[in-house]
Each structure stands twice: as structure tokens, then as C-alpha cells.
Nucleic acid binder design. Structure first.
Length: 491
RNA sequence: GGUCUCUUAGUAUAACGGUUAGUACAACGGGUUUUCAUCCCGUCAACGCGGGUUCGACUCCCGCAGAGAUCACCA
């Protein structure tokens, strides 16, 4: 059985570069009927951020990456917060001490820093094992005593060549020069990531570890620990970084990398974000672009994960989002899409009914890149627009007509619409076609005049649909208002 | 500096050692009774460099260059 995990630190929101290391393990677990575990790596108390855990849970829920074990849902390996697992790490650390593979290190931090600087100055790579204290050779009893006295526990490394297989990167190897006496348990009694994740993954039965490539250079130390602890190596998947839109740096919070929360607030659909991120650095070899979560689960394969970094492209997210907005509307219906839009209407829409807003959505949805566009694109459906006459007169089609002609044209439209019996999209369409004939104006002229008079917006849906949704009263009132303004202008 | 990794159009990517190097986004042009968008059609655009192996290399090997990661009592 395949067991994967997402193990974030609660140091803030999940930024976009990290979500993928939740998505891939999730897909791997789901496609094999395995388990996906959420584990909170909160061993660094200095970096702990209040509320960050909830934000992580919220983000995963929103993306529908449900976890089988972890916070909230519990599980057989609880607790799932590393800060609550001290005894477990202590037990494993004692095993190493008993075996002579770990020692308590009394070297003061300042001393270590001096060693480091001296080695740097001498252009020697700094390795703590070159400065091993006498305590490294203490008996287990002496070591335990020194540990209790508040000293950190270090691994006693046994430098040698390592080679291993990475499911993404292939066969890898390094020399002994990277093996060191890494800290396992800090002075504060909490383990380092280096030690904790190995213990936890073993205890929780994790079979596939997917994480960023930045951990690649620590692999020899991890392999040494698996060996010393008598553990079998799990599968390793090093996921290449997502690069910032500009430069060659990995996407970080300072590169304008937005959090998932921000994309959500902007009106990006979870389906779109999932789709985009899954396909950034992975493809199934076909030319399919749009994947539902179920399709991703089915199609995903570890050996087709890209092994070079991929640049983050917001334009493509917006394209995916537009596709998904239309997909949901066309496949699940306007009501289903409407369900997603609750937080995105302009304030002016507050007093309007769901029915009316649904109608607006139904004619505007295929112009949306994000649901947030509703705020800026639908205002004129809920409030009379400002009569920006310069916009109307200066329009590239209308500026060829005199104000007199505009007024006459508006009058013709108003008369015709006044006498219209049935206010429907079809009859409105027919009416405008008749008006084209009776007035002899070009479509660009007639339509632009009516469209701008109704919306004063840079763009809007097809005219007959806009009129239908706006209704007879609002449509005629706005046309009359523009005609009056033009008439006053003339006098 | 040591160690490790990566390298196809602007971006994301495809291509049993034999293809006019495919697709998508972006850009640009055109079409669909106004606009914006959708939809459709089209244009532009890539194998980092140098050696080898081979009848033949984007693909295999070696070197170089460029980029990235890491070298914490952070993860």
C-alpha cells in the first residue's frame, strides 16, 4: 500500500510554490488506493505562526485534497503535530545513543561558529565532524547525562559514498564529503527536521516522500540515518522548483508569489489552480490540457514528472480559470457556477435577487477570467451608470454621426421598444434587425449607441441579452436619459 | 569554494536513434451583425556550445558554458 504525506511547517500561508508538493503526493496516493497523510512540522517554535495550521487545512480543503490521517481527522499514528511527539523522537534518539551512533554535544554555539569561520577562511568546507568533541566518545550513560544537562544530540556520522534512486531525478550519488554530524535533537528538546521526518515517516508507514529538490543535498545524511536506525529506504521524489515569473530564482514569497488564499480571493477556481499546478512540471504525454481531479488521479504517473524547474505563469492560470468557468457552466449548469460566485458580486448587487444575478451571470460568464471580474464587469446591471457623454460621442463608430442623428436614432429605438409586446431575447433581436433596416444605419452604429447608452462600459454582452436581463423599464429609462442629455447638449 | 542537480520557441511541454521538431498559453493578423470575451482560421517562434559514437543524434557518451540547490540547534 502506498502512503504519501504532505508535511508543511505552520509558518504562514501556503504559497503557490509549495502546493504542488501537496498535490503530487495526493494524486499518487489516490490513484493506488493508498493513504495521504497531513503532518504538521512545527518543531521550530521561533517561526511558528498562530493560525497557520488552520490556514493550511483550509487551503487543502478548498483544493479538495482531503487527507486520510492528520489534524482534525486523527488516525492510528496520532498526534500529527511534531511538537507533540517529543517522546517518540527521544526513544529513537536513545536507540542511536545505545548503538554509539549519537552523542550529546557540549560545544557552545559560539565555538561552532568560530570553527565555521576558520574553515571558511582556510577554504575548507566546514564539517562539524572535523571538530568532534571528546564527548562524542562518551558511554551511553554519560551521553544521556550530558543530554539531560541541556546539550543537543548529534549524529555520529560514518562518512562514505552513497548512491540511491530518486523516482524523479533518476540514479544519484555523492561522495563522503557531504556526510556530517548533524543535529538530531536541539537544545530545546525538539528534533530538527532532519531527524523528525525520518522517524515520523517510519512510524507512519510512509512509502513515498515527495518534496522539493532543496533536500537533495541532505540525502546522504538521511540515508546514513535510515541505515543507522535499521530502516528501509522509502521512495524519494525530488520535485523541481517552481521558478518566479522573472529571473531564475525559485518562486518565493518575495517574488510576488501569491498565496493560494489570494488566488481564491481573486476568484480563481480550485479546479483551475489544481489543473494548472498539476500540469506545471508534469504531463501524461497526450495533448490534453484540461483535467478534472479524477482525470488527474487516473492519468498521473511519477515517471512523467519533469526534472527541471518550471516557471510560474499567471497568464496561463487565468486561461485555465476561464476554461473552467465555462466548463462548469456548460457541463453543470448556470446554477452550479452561480454557487461559486457568492463572494464576488459588486456591492451594488447586494439588494438584487438570486434569480436576477443568475441571469446576469448567464450572459456574462464567458467573458470572465476570474470570478472577481464580476465586480468590475457587471455594475451597470445593478445601478444606473454615470452618463459619460464624452465616452458616447467619442466612440469610434458614433463620432461620425451628429448629435441630431444620435437623438433621432435613439428616438426610433425608444419608439420601437415601447411598442414591443413581448420583452424577450428573440423579439429584441428581431426588433434590432428591423431597426437596422428602417433607419438604414450600420450595425456598428446602432448597436454601439444602444450598448453604450445602457452600460457606459467598455464592453458588455450581446445587446439583445443585455436588454432582456435589464428589463423593459430600466432599458427605456436609460435610453431616455441619454436622449435627454443629448437634447440638452444641443440647446 | 565543496557537493549535487538541471538545460527544446517569451512560457509550459511532446517527440522507439530516421518527423517539414508536434501541442497549449502569450504575441500578431483574419473571420463570427457593435464592444469585450467565447468560438474558428492563420502567422511568428525552439533542440545552450564543442567534440565524439553512428549510414543517421533533440535523443547515446565526453567536455564546456549557463542556471539552480545546498553547505543552520530552518524546514
Amino acid at each position: 500500500m502506498i502512503v504519501t504525506r504532505f508535511a508543511p511547517s505552520p509558518t504562514g500561508y501556503i504559497h503557490i510554490g509549495n502546493v504542488r508538493s501537496a498535490i503530487y503526493p495526493y494524486l499518487i496516493a489516490r490513484q493506488s488506493g493508498g493513504k495521504f497523510i497531513l503532518r504538521i512540522e512545527d518543531t521550530d517554535q521561533a517561526r511558528f505562526v498562530e493560525g497557520a495550521t488552520e490556514l493550511i487545512e483550509d487551503t487543502l480543503n478548498w483544493l479538495t485534497l482531503e487527507w486520510d490521517e492528520g489534524p482534525v481527522v486523527g488516525g492510528p499514528n496520532a498526534p500529527y503535530f511534531q511538537s507533540e511527539r517529543r517522546e517518540i523522537y527521544a526513544t529513537w534518539a536513545k536507540k542511536l545513543i545505545e548503538a554509539g551512533r549519537a552523542y550529546a554535544d557540549p560545544t557552545p554555539a559560539e565555538e561552532v561558529q568560530k570553527f565555521r569561520e576558520a574553515d571558511n577562511a582556510a577554504k575548507i568546507p566546514f564539517l562539524f565532524r572535523n571538530h568532534r568533541p571528546a564527548a562524542a566518545d562518551f558511554t551511553p550513560e554519560e551521553t544521556l547525562k550530558l543530554w539531560e544537562a541541556g546539550n543537543p544530540i548529534r549524529f555520529k556520522s560514518d562518512p562514505k559514498d552513497y548512491s540511491w534512486h530518486d523516482d524523479v531525478m533518476g540514479d544519484l550519488s555523492t561522495g563522503p564529503e557531504v556526510c556530517d554530524d548533524i543535529i538530531l535533537i536541539k537544545k530545546d528538546g525538539l528534533p530538527t527536521y532532519n531527524f523528525a521526518h525520518i522517524v515520523d515517516d517510519a512510524e507512519m508507514g510512509v512509502t513515498h516522500i515527495a518534496r522539493g529538490v532543496e533536500y537533495l543535498s541532505s540525502m546522504p545524511n538521511y540515508l546514513a540515518l535510515y541505515e543507522a536506525l535499521g530502516l528501509e529506504r522509502p521512495h524519494f521524489l525530488s520535485l523541481p522548483h517552481i521558478l518566479a515569473p522573472t529571473g531564475n530564482k525559485k518562486l518565493g514569497k518575495r517574488d510576488g508569489a501569491k498565496s493560494v488564499t489570494e488566488y481564491r480571493a481573486d476568484g480563481v477556481l480550485p479546479e483551475a489552480l489544481l489543473n494548472y499546478l498539476a500540469c506545471l512540471g508534469w504531463n501524461d504525454g497526450t495533448e490534453q490540457e484540461i483535467y478534472t481531479k479524477d482525470e488527474l488521479i487516473k492519468a498521473f504517473s511519477i515517471n512523467r514528472i519533469q526534472n527541471s524547474g518550471a516557471r510560474f505563469d499567471e497568464t496561463k492560470i487565468l486561461w485555465y480559470n476561464g476554461m473552467w468557468i465555462r466548463k462548469i457552466h456548460d457541463e453543470q449548469g448556470n446554477d452550479a457556477l452561480y454557487e461559486c460566485t457568492q463572494d464576488f458580486w459588486p456591492e451594488s448587487a447586494a439588494s438584487f435577487s438570486d434569480e436576477y444575478k443568475k441571469k446576469v451571470l448567464d450572459i456574462i460568464y464567458d467573458r470572465l477570467k476570474t470570478l472577481g471580474d464580476l465586480k468590475t464587469m457587471t455594475n451597470y446591471f445593478f445601478a444606473d451608470p454615470n452618463l459619460d457623454m464624452d465616452l458616447l460621442i467619442g466612440n469610434k463608430f458614433l463620432k461620425k454621426l451628429s448629435e441630431r442623428e444620435l437623438i433621432d436614432l435613439l428616438s426610433a429605438v425608444i419608439d420601437k421598444l415601447n411598442s414591443l409586446k413581448e420583452w424577450s431575447a428573440d423579439s429584441l433581436q428581431a426588433t434590432f434587425n428591423e431597426l437596422l433596416e428602417t433607419t438604414g444605419k450600420k450595425p456598428a452604429e446602432l448597436f454601439s449607441l444602444v450598448r453604450i447608452s445602457l452600460s457606459f462600459a467598455p464592453f458588455s454582452p450581446a445587446l439583445h441579452l443585455t436588454c432582456e436581463v435589464l428589463g423593459r423599464d430600466a432599458t427605456l429609462a436609460r435610453l431616455n436619459a441619454v436622449r435627454s442629455a443629448l437634447t440638452n447638449d444641443l440647446h
